[in-house]
């Protein structure tokens, strides 16, 4: 294995070692070592269920958001009057931090799963909208011109030109949207009525169980990283023609 690939691995190992050393030299109520966090992960019976529930919330909110954000973003990118009409409005709403909607969402959806799904949807919506509209606007007109000069019918135009040209940025939009959705799930589970991973995290914090806290934080981080890397991998395999 080359040095280029070994160095990141070495860095991660060194980071874990530092965590372990710092954790062992400070009292456990302040900062727990990595091994204690690992032990917590393996010995918490409620963890797999909590992860599954959190993921279910995540997927529901994400899908609700994507079915609106992607077509709307696409329309904003391709149709000039849709863009002109929607752009000021969307910029304005985007400037509001999603968490600021929480008290409002509580009024509408209560403290439980509906509100959590709503936060996930809001947090992933605008990133996907922005990427989809920027991507759709950047589809090279040459491609469409070629199709038009061969007098391709409308459906051929969509199937053979627009969809393949859109896949790369749709992948990016979905990837960023999903990462935002992970952040949305954990935010919602902490700030609304505590649930799933958020509840485990707050329970650990209430008992000064820093091993538990760090273990959940690591789980959330790895979940985000896994989704990100998984989609990058999928992207490289599906979009063979885009590969350099």
């Amino acid at each position: 294995m080359s040095l280029r690939r070994l160095l990141p691995l070495f860095s991660v190992a060194a980071g874990l070692a530092v965590w372990e050393v710092v954790g062992r030299s400070t009292p456990p109520v302040v900062f727990a070592p990595a091994s204690a966090a690992g032990w917590y992960l393996l010995h918490t019976a409620a963890l797999p269920g909590a992860i599954a529930q959190s993921l279910l919330t995540l997927v529901t909110g994400f899908v609700l958001s994507a079915v609106v954000a992607l077509p709307l973003g696409f329309a904003m990118g391709r149709v000039w009057w849709v863009r002109e009409m929607m752009h000021p409005l969307m910029t304005g709403i985007y400037a509001i931090p999603p968490v600021a909607f929480i008290p409002f969402l509580v009024v509408w959806f209560g403290l439980f799963v509906e509100s959590r799904v709503a936060i996930v949807a809001i947090m992933s919506f605008f990133e996907m909208l922005t990427i989809a509209s920027a991507g759709a606007a950047a589809i090279p007109p040459k491609l469409l011109d070629v199709a038009r000069s061969f007098s391709a019918p409308r459906w051929r135009m969509v199937a053979a030109v627009l969809i393949p040209a859109s896949l790369p940025f749709l992948f990016t939009a979905i990837r960023i949207g999903l990462v935002r959705a992970v952040a949305g799930v954990i935010t919602a589970e902490l700030l609304l009525s505590p649930a799933n991973l958020g509840k485990l995290l707050l329970d650990s914090a209430a008992r000064f169980n820093t091993a538990g806290i760090l273990a959940i934080v690591a789980t959330v981080a790895l979940l985000g990283l896994a989704i990100q890397q998984g989609l990058l991998w999928l992207e490289r395999h599906v979009l063979r023609w885009e590969r350099p």
Binding site: V12, A183, I186, S204, V217, V220, A221, G224
Partner: peptide, 21 residues
């Protein structure tokens, strides 16, 4: 090579999760 893995880990981690600690 040393820092990138950490950066990509932290940028996807929601700050909300770090708030309790």
């Amino acid at each position: 090579a040393l820092l990138h893995p950490w950066m990509s880990l932290f940028v996807v981690t929601s700050v909300a999760a770090i708030v309790p600690i």
